[in-house]
Amino acid sequence: MMNKTKLTFAIAFLGMLITAPFLLAGDHFDAPAVSGTSSDLSSFYAFEGANTNNLVLVANLQGLLPSGVPTQIAQFDEDVLVEFNIDTTGDLIEDLVIQATKRGDTMYFFGPVVPISTGLQSEIATFATQSKVAISSGTTDAEAIVATNNGMQFFAGARDDAFFFDLNRFNAIVSGEVTGFNEVGEDTFAGTNTLSIVVELPKSMLGTGAIGINPNAPTTPIYSIWVETKRKQ
């Protein structure tokens, strides 16, 4: 039996399919105000680096870009600030930020630094450690431009979308067309790209983290991290 939410999803998705296929294709599945825009975040990753002293932060924007699009029409926006927020104490308030924004053909980075203010409104902390990397426009690994500064590494440019999911089947389940997934699904994100910002930095720059945050790993020191996009007013 189809419930109310599923029905709502079904109508919403059907409406999008019929009237605005680009919107569905331009976003993993987000909200109307940012869907398909230059501030639209598609994914966030945070994991230990190949050097286990380091942490890697990945922000992906403008997901589901078809092949060739990132270097042609999809571009980072000079009016958009991408901000990694790191809470080291467990109160869900950022203690440190790493800010990234594009100027010209270059992505500039500031931090990690104590933010000028916490919350929804930001200014760029130009007094913090400054780094930059030329935005990669090539499509091969050899063409990926990587910059290093102060023990950190930086990348900005188009990459394969790392997200994998049978989104079309999920939509069909939610809309009540089918009852379940297939044993072998189809990756809706195969062959598509995102615009990616990648930062690798020593964990020591973020302090020790807080214990007792994750009940599944109560003795592991935890950083609580999220990524935001903010637009210049």
Binding site: A33, I124, K230, R231
Partner: peptide
């Protein structure tokens, strides 16, 4: 790099 930036999205 001046100016005020207001939040639009988060993950």
């Amino acid at each position: 790099f001046s100016g005020t930036y207001m939040q639009e999205d988060q993950v």
